[in-house]
Design a protein around this nucleic acid. Sequence first.
DNA 1: CCTAAACCTGACGTCGACGTGAGGTACGAG
DNA 2: CTCGTACCTCACGTCGACGTCAGGTTTAGG
Lengths: 118, 118
Amino acid sequence: MRIGQLARRSGVSVRALRYYEEQRLLESARTPGGQRDYPDEALERVQLIQDLFAAGLSSRTVVELLPCVSTGVATPAMLDQLIIERDRIAARIQDLTRAKTKLGRVIENVTAAKVVQD
Amino acid sequence: MRIGQLARRSGVSVRALRYYEEQRLLESARTPGGQRDYPDEALERVQLIQDLFAAGLSSRTVVELLPCVSTGVATPAMLDQLIIERDRIAARIQDLTRAKTKLGRVIENVTAAKVVQD
DNA sequence: CCTAAACCTGACGTCGACGTGAGGTACGAG
DNA sequence: CTCGTACCTCACGTCGACGTCAGGTTTAGG
């Protein structure tokens, strides 16, 4: 599979895929002409990378954790890092939940005020 | 209250407070000498701004929503925006929850493998 | 009056995940 | 062989929420 097709299938840009390779998140074989050639598994990998980015991990962290996320084998340091990131995500969820509740209350207030006004 | 004290009380930097003013998120009176002088309510306001930033809102969005968040009065457009942001936060929470679950499973796998190995 | 600490206004630097444009090469269809 | 499209490698631009440095002013205390 070439880069354009992988981009369309995964929903990320061609530029992003090259960036992933630059950051050593994603490898590619090359055609004799020098064009990238991806195996089918690359699709899952790109989706995994996207998930981790969406969770707020940096590319540096992702590159450290990708091996154990995909293989299930981890060094103690990697396990620590995994736990740190999971806890960070949990804390972030707390923050967002609080903010959502706050906005929800504002919406209720505003709506109530409007109803009264009507 | 002067800027340094507000910074210490709210836990944000002096630079950040000046930035908030630049973005019209926060007002200040001035002493005859030109130094910022904040009322006590500024503390709550800064905390509110922080909460909204933490929820991923941009300063532009915050400046649009601050009036109704603090006063409870909103135009229809503001109400729409409030709902959009709340839903965006909810979606973000979903993403993070999925990622957290995924990392949790990886941690379980790794831990299980290690226990077996022991 | 003097000094140190806190404050002021520019204005440039940062970081991460790409976007974007330039200038050139590879590939598949006809 | 040729054309159009996809691809290649630099390499600079972007955006947002500040950090940081420079050079000067204000304030509170002794």
